[in-house]
Design a binder for these strands. Structure first.
Lengths: 206, 206
DNA sequence: TTCGATAACTTGACACTGACTAGATTGCCC
DNA sequence: GGGCAATCTAGTCAGTGTCAAGTTATCGAA
């Protein structure tokens, strides 16, 4: 435990930790976020420990709280970031099917964000950043549904939205929880999803 | 919380806790499971604490471990029970649509089971009870898909299964995470789901 | 340039948790 | 009855989130 390397030479205070690293981390907030995403995608949100993240970033155990207040704050920040990323990729979708494919791709590329976004009991639901980002993503989804010609989306666009969202969300969720490892096998999940939508919407969508 | 009925009369040892309750709980395993389901459906699996469950059951903090080994064991038992319940209700389905409706109903009636079943990082994945129960539920799902006439399920039954499962699972998940509170509103979710399937499968299924 | 406010981080403490151990108590079966 | 296994208690340990108070860096005015 005690460092045995000439403990006195010019070291001002041996009780204090190594001072090669400056007192201020530089971009601790980003470092904590990145480490958190690693942990979550590997072991799930419940394995997240603020002290562990601090250790990984080489700072003291209470440092993360200064940027995120508490554990819930950190997860809320991740969820908000996730909704922002999702909204951005949905905005570029060509049509509803492409939006679905992008939804699945987002879940695969940002599994940690995705998990946290849909775990409301882990989040501060009244957080402003979170609610606005989520509303924006919802708006993008509605736009994608609205772009479908009326003949193809049935009488109620809200219902069509729920249908599309359910399909994409279910597929993405089952994919992440490894429940499609069998049936999908080694095929590209996005291709499988495209096949799926082709099957369900074959009589109407182009 | 504390029963105030004649607290001292013939109490032999005041240091020991209240002995009106017998040394053996009687059905601690079931009591712990029930309390765990309450906690999970109210606050999610991450709020689960073995010590809290012990407190609710009125036993010592280490008693739950005797029935479930550890936290993971408890959650695994819940998941296995969930897959058993799901398999049972799917076995009674009349057709694929009814199976989907039953899937959604299961998620609403057993939200705690449902959440835990699809959180693999919280479970002991190689647990025998879990894997057999899960396999059974998967078999019931495949049977429901196989019962659809070939004209209605496309060339690949596995793909049809993934489609049906994705739709039901996505709808159920979004429902539980309160993401459909807006669009579905106060309608019965099962009715909405029936409308959904009618929309997507209108050209083929009866 | 100096100074002071403020942000970034550390340190120490507290109550809580899961896991483990050894031992006490009980019901049950022969 | 005696023995025995299941059940439960009690104590301990390392690890956790969070709070309060202290320390150090940064930056904007004076």
């Amino acid at each position: 435990m005690s460092d045995t390397t000439e403990p006195d030479r010019t070291k001002p205070d041996p009780a204090k930790p190594d001072r090669r690293r400056p007192y201020h981390h530089g971009d601790l907030r980003r470092a904590i976020l990145a480490a958190a995403l690693d942990v979550i995608s590997a072991e799930g949100p419940s394995a997240l420990s603020l002290r562990d993240l601090a250790r990984r970033a080489g700072v003291s155990h209470a440092a993360p709280a200064h940027h995120f207040k508490d554990r819930t704050g950190l997860l809320t920040a991740i969820a908000a970031e996730g909704y922002g990323l999702l909204a951005a990729t949905l905005a570029e979708a060509e049509d509803l099917r492409d939006a679905g494919v992008r939804y699945v791709r987002f879940a695969r590329e940002h599994p940690a964000h995705f998990q946290v976004m849909f775990a409301p009991e882990l989040l501060r639901e009244n957080d402003l950043e979170l609610t606005t980002a989520r509303a924006l993503a919802g708006e993008r989804l509605r736009e994608a549904v609205a772009a479908v010609p009326p003949s193809g989306r049935g009488p109620d666009p809200r219902l069509a939205g729920v249908a599309a969202w359910s399909l994409a969300h279910g597929f993405a969720t089952l994919l992440l929880s490894h429940n499609l490892d069998g049936p999908v096998g080694d095929q590209d999940p996005e291709d499988v999803f495209r096949l799926l939508t082709g099957m369900l919407f074959q009589s109407r969508s182009g």
